[in-house]
């Protein structure tokens, strides 16, 4: 039965991908991409990759759809390229290239170990160590969280810096709009009364749920990345329904910018404190007298840093894009 569900979901993934290629309305493409995210997240759930599914559901199906939509509101709704093919439009070459590359990739998979075999490198290299020793070394039940935040703490630090850099990049490109209040635009969706009231009821629940995801990440699926995205989506929902100006009154833009840096700073500081206490960078064993307590404290702080940075960067990107598109709308 499980493999039947797998096959059906993969078939639907392929169908969605073909539909994405064929549809020319970019809004529809965005929606289909959202469906693609939901489907692949379901697939990850079926493969027991709960943390990945969580991230895919929050990022792939949720926030990236919203960011693409803001972009579309600036650019336009329809794909232009293939509406009227030019005389020298030759898709054959591209098709041959893609086919050959695909065939090579499929040929390459022949050498890979079968799915789930016991002697595959992924099962024999470092995974046994993580699975056997995580409970005694780190002391938290969710091995994914212990790998993400402790064993692979450097990599996660790198990811947080990447997200922070993305936020800086967006600000650098559209800085002139970001610091001032560009438009006095009140509440675009003011006629949707039911929507506004229900959302007002939901926003506190969403934030509470984000906090649960943040601090329950050591015990179940979840963690800083997912929690940050969910937390940001609450503010984004508010901004969409009540207008950007109202949302800016709630979250001060300067404060959000500071917070996005603060998260990275918190993460780095944990590493530096570990160094001062005599260990390596990000070696949480040295944060406390008891190594396991040190690990738990370190993971908690690090995940908090990740959550703060992710949430603030998402808010920054969304607000900046929305401000820009509203300004352009007014200029015409």
């Amino acid at each position: 039965m499980e493999s039947f569900v797998h096959v059906v979901i993969i078939l639907m993934l392929v169908t969605t991908a073909i539909a994405i290629v064929r549809v020319k309305d970019l809004f529809a493409v965005t929606m289909l991409a959202g469906i693609y995210g939901l489907l692949s997240a379901s697939f990850f759930v079926l493969m027991d990759a709960h943390d990945v599914a969580f991230t895919e559901a929050a990022v792939g199906a949720g926030i990236s759809t919203l960011l693409v939509l803001t972009t579309l509101s600036m650019t336009g709704r329809f794909e232009k390229a293939s509406v009227k093919p030019q005389a020298d439009y030759r898709p054959v070459l591209a098709l041959v290239l893609v086919t050959v590359t695909g065939a090579l990739l499929i040929y390459g998979t022949q050498d890979m170990p079968g799915f789930g075999t016991a002697d595959a490198p992924v099962q024999t290299h470092v995974v046994p160590r993580y699975l056997n020793d995580s409970a005694t070394e780190i002391g938290i039940p969710n091995v994914v969280a212990s790998i993400l935040a402790s064993y692979r703490g450097y990599d996660t630090f790198g990811e947080v810096v990447v997200i922070f850099t993305a936020g800086i990049g967006v600000l650098a490109m559209v800085m002139s709009n970001a610091t001032k209040m560009p438009v006095v635009q009140t509440a675009l969706m003011s006629d949707h009364v039911v929507l506004r009231i229900v959302s007002k009821m939901l926003i506190p629940l969403i934030m509470l749920f984000a906090l649960y995801v943040q601090f329950h990440g050591e015990y179940g699926p979840g963690g800083g990345f997912q929690a940050g995205v969910i937390f940001a989506s609450a503010f984004i929902l508010y901004a969409m329904l009540f207008g950007l100006t109202a949302a800016r009154n709630v979250v001060n833009h300067t404060l959000v910018q500071l917070l996005s840096a603060l998260g990275v700073l918190l993460y780095g500081s944990v590493g530096v404190v570990a160094m001062i206490n005599g260990g390596n960078f990000l070696d949480y064993n040295f944060l406390s007298d008891d190594p396991v307590a040190g690990q738990m404290l370190g993971i908690l702080l690090v995940e908090l840093g990740v959550g703060i940075t992710v949430a603030s960067v998402m808010i920054i990107i969304f607000f900046t894009f929305t401000a820009r598109s509203q300004k352009e709308g007014e200029a015409d």
Partner: peptide, 25 residues
């Protein structure tokens, strides 16, 4: 079930987002 909850939430926000940007684009 945590994941199902995230879905329910993100689904709602996405639909609102599409409406918001489509209606006022």
């Amino acid at each position: 079930l945590d994941i199902a909850m995230v879905y329910a939430l993100m689904n709602f926000i996405t639909v609102i987002g599409i409406l918001r940007f489509f209606e006022y684009s």
